[in-house]
Amino acid sequence: MTAQAESDRPDAHGDVHDGLHSEQGAIRGDRPHRATNPVIKVEDIAWLEFEKPDLDAAERFAHDFGFVTAARTADTLHLRGALAGTQCVVIRRGRGSRFVGPTFRAADVADVHRLAKATNGAAYELREPGGGVGVDLVDPSGVPLRVVAGVAELPALPLQRPLTVNAGGAVERANATQRPPREPARIERLGHVVLESARFTQALDWYQQHLGLIVSDFLYFPGQRDRGPTMAFIRCDRGATPTDHHTLAMTLGPGRTYIHSAYQVADLDALAAGGEYLTEHRYKRSWGIGRHIEGSQIFDYWRDPDGFLVEHFTDGDMFDNTLEPGWTPMTASGLAQWGPAVTRDFLEVNPSMIKQIVSALTAGDNEFTARRLLGMISMSRS
Rank of each mutant, 00 (worst) to 15 (best):
V133I: 15
H63Q: 09
V90M: 09
L163C: 02
D64T: 06
G94H: 01
T69G: 03
T119F: 04
T103A: 15
T76M: 02
D64A: 14
P102V: 10
G130K: 11
R95E: 15
R72H: 08
Y124V: 12
H113Y: 12
A118Q: 05
P140N: 03
G131L: 12
V100A: 08
R127S: 14
G132M: 05
R92K: 12
G101L: 04
A152I: 06
A70K: 01
L79S: 01
V89D: 11
R92A: 14
F104M: 12
H63W: 03
F67A: 04
G96T: 15
A82Y: 09
A110W: 02
Q87D: 13
G130P: 04
R80N: 01
L154K: 06
K52N: 13
E128L: 13
R95A: 14
A62F: 00
R93I: 03
K52R: 14
L145A: 14
V90S: 10
P162F: 00
L79H: 02
T119V: 14
D56M: 05
G81L: 01
Y124M: 04
R146A: 10
D64N: 14
C88L: 04
A107F: 02
F104H: 12
E125R: 08
D139R: 11
A116F: 06
A58M: 07
A71H: 10
G132K: 06
E125Q: 05
R92G: 12
F104A: 14
E153H: 14
F61Q: 10
D139W: 08
A156Q: 12
V147A: 00
A107E: 04
R72K: 13
E59N: 04
G142F: 03
L159Q: 11
E125D: 09
E51W: 00
A122F: 08
T164S: 11
